[in-house]
């Protein structure tokens, strides 16, 4: 699947399990400026639901897309404020 936005930063949390993918994603988005997109690479199957839920419940971030690959889950989160 093609990704149609510029990626400002990539966060590799492959191997990490709950709660670290969400915790690290939060820390990484804190370092972005408004409009920038973070790519998150995770192997935790729970990260799909967790990053979705976190982004939905958190001000200032928007989940743009999630790609479920064979082994790796890609998440794209934009900082919106």
């Amino acid at each position: 699947m093609s990704v149609e936005f510029d990626i400002a930063e990539t966060l590799d949390v492959k191997g990490a399990s709950c709660p670290m993918p969400v915790i690290e994603t939060k820390a990484a988005t804190d370092g972005l400026v408004e409009g920038e997109v973070l790519e998150v690479l995770a192997t935790d199957p729970g990260s799909v639901s967790d990053i979705d839920g976190w982004a939905a419940g958190t001000d200032g971030v928007k989940l743009l897309e999630q790609v479920e690959g064979e082994d790796v889950y890609q998440h794209y989160v934009r900082r919106t404020e």
């Binding site: 709950c18 969400v22 915790i23 976190w54 419940g57 958190t58």
Partner: peptide
Amino acid sequence: LILASTAAAFG
């Protein structure tokens, strides 16, 4: 610990 750190990530 997991709930506390995750809730902090939510703000």
